[in-house]
Design a binder for these strands. Sequence first.
DNA 1: AATCATTTTGGGAATGTTCCCAAAAATTTG
DNA 2: CAAATTTTTGGGAACATTCCCAAAATGATT
Lengths: 356, 356
Amino acid sequence: MRTLFLSGKAFIQEKYYIVKNHQATIVDIARTLNLSKSTVSRALTGHPNVKAGTREKVLEMAAQMDYQRNQLAISLLTNRTQTVGIIVPEFLSFFFPKVIIGAQNVLAEAGYNVVICHSNESYETEVANTKALLASRVDGLLVSHTKETRNFDHFRVFERKGIPVVFFNRIVEELGGSKVAVDDYGGAFRAVGHLIQTGKRRIAHLAGPDSIQNSRNRLNGYLDALRRYDIPVDPALIISYDLTLDKANIYVNHLLNLPQPPDALFAINDPTAIEALKVIKSRGLRIPQDVAVVGFSDDPVSALIEPGLTTVAQPVDEIGRQAAALLLKQLAADDERPEAETVVLETRLIVRGSTV
Amino acid sequence: MRTLFLSGKAFIQEKYYIVKNHQATIVDIARTLNLSKSTVSRALTGHPNVKAGTREKVLEMAAQMDYQRNQLAISLLTNRTQTVGIIVPEFLSFFFPKVIIGAQNVLAEAGYNVVICHSNESYETEVANTKALLASRVDGLLVSHTKETRNFDHFRVFERKGIPVVFFNRIVEELGGSKVAVDDYGGAFRAVGHLIQTGKRRIAHLAGPDSIQNSRNRLNGYLDALRRYDIPVDPALIISYDLTLDKANIYVNHLLNLPQPPDALFAINDPTAIEALKVIKSRGLRIPQDVAVVGFSDDPVSALIEPGLTTVAQPVDEIGRQAAALLLKQLAADDERPEAETVVLETRLIVRGSTV
DNA sequence: AATCATTTTGGGAATGTTCCCAAAAATTTG
DNA sequence: CAAATTTTTGGGAACATTCCCAAAATGATT
């Protein structure tokens, strides 16, 4: 009995062993209702040229059979998967999850699914991720690259194939494609300016790796703020590190052990700044009197700890929303790709107990 | 010239408008090398029956053309996508991201890709997620359901289609499929026992919604601990809420306003407990002398705040790893699905300043 | 040199869907 | 009531790949 409902292959298999896990297809529905697959297809996709009664019968049978359209077949045919890939280097801090949620909201609205890849700050994994996304034929890509990534050829492949890529947060100047960044330079400039205005003069900077543009921009903001107030730059106070927290611990201790230790620290991000606060407290120094600390990105934790962390806030989910919007703009045009755009979002300083 | 390289459709299109974004196929490679698609396919998949020279030529041409296999076509044919879906209710707290990373590591090892869906604690979104994953033909599913989910029919569809589902963290007793949970009952029992041993007698419990099994188990642990020490249960001290933090704020204030306020609070999770600490501090009460607080799940923030939060730790990424492992076990068997398993992981109490 | 065995290659079906075009059925018009 | 028109349905190609089976090429053995 049941065999009547099943499409070719399953029908044959039924004779030899019990059919398991057969996913109903439009052919199965067509067979049971004595219709052609064309008609069933039309009924299911809402095409107007189907008799009302027929459509009803089809929909009913589809529900009864747990029919679920096979997106693979459709994508193969249409050459569009309605899927966007997102590659992020980590998602344990609040930052990337929040960006992803922002992007996902905008993309879901437009009928796109999202595949999230976690490169885990590994170049190799990132390359593997792009291969996998290429194989699964994503329509577009949102990327924040790893700190190890210095060669961007794996992204150029997308360019060549006409698959739009939008970079966010960690962007790549030398590559085409739309970009979403925040005003890292301005944020850093204001943060360091604030420290100077509270009377600090020996301001250290725990910088991020040179491979990430944010790091370079924040470093420039730091340098220009010092110059602006005629404070000499001491290279001993600038340490670039790889963002792993145990290293942060070591470097903060190193700075505090200097013959002329810093009276303030501007950290590349909030996790680093929080680690610094721990070290400073554990050494019995007062915050901010002995050492003031500023972070970057306003992690929710920063408001919870004692003292609260002064930090440069950025509109995190807006980064995701903007990146998604730029990608959709690229995807919408089916003839010529519109020109790539770069969006720079504002940052603002949030002053808390770690500086005043 | 270029047209010679292109497969059928593209070839025709070339005559009318410029071909853009054509993704090279094995047919394109076959054409340029004067081979059949069968031979090219064999060369690329590493089938032994290909002459060494031919294989080399094919691989070289594939690289030159940026060839990337079309996983859609393969999946359509083989009826396996090598993709696993993960549905989580949120990922702003550290918990779910960490579970996902654990699961992803295990799954990637086994050659599976991962599609992450964010149901955002919305039943509707969760149902939509399952539909999308069904349409994209995931081979298996890892789920932690929303707090709104009371009807589980959308998961039963997977069962009927023979697609294995593994529930983690928020599990569903009444459904088949493997499950990964932690010892919520024992953790809660020990947490409340600890409060009692530090001399507390009026212990409140901010519980989670009844729809989530963890909430029920932790509540039972709380109740049994009180009974064990012959402390009367006061229903006024048990408040079940929907896990939104502004509500937590209101309920903690409500509890502290009672004629006989509690001298301790056991919270369903760490974010709730941290919110409680804020309220208690803002009212000028001493922690833990006036009110002690215990959370659940050892959020990294809990170690950073003042005072440190006593909490029940659970092996978060192990939850993900175990869930992935159970799913792989189901996926490995291509004949009969092995019996579903349930793994319960240990919890352990971490004592910090919020209780001693 | 002819036969046999082995290696290498090619042709075609199948996967599930959409869409075009033609055929059939139903409806309207003269 | 036949012709013309509209609505509804069916058949088949196409998407990119794998795999089976047959055909061709090569190598080994007599």
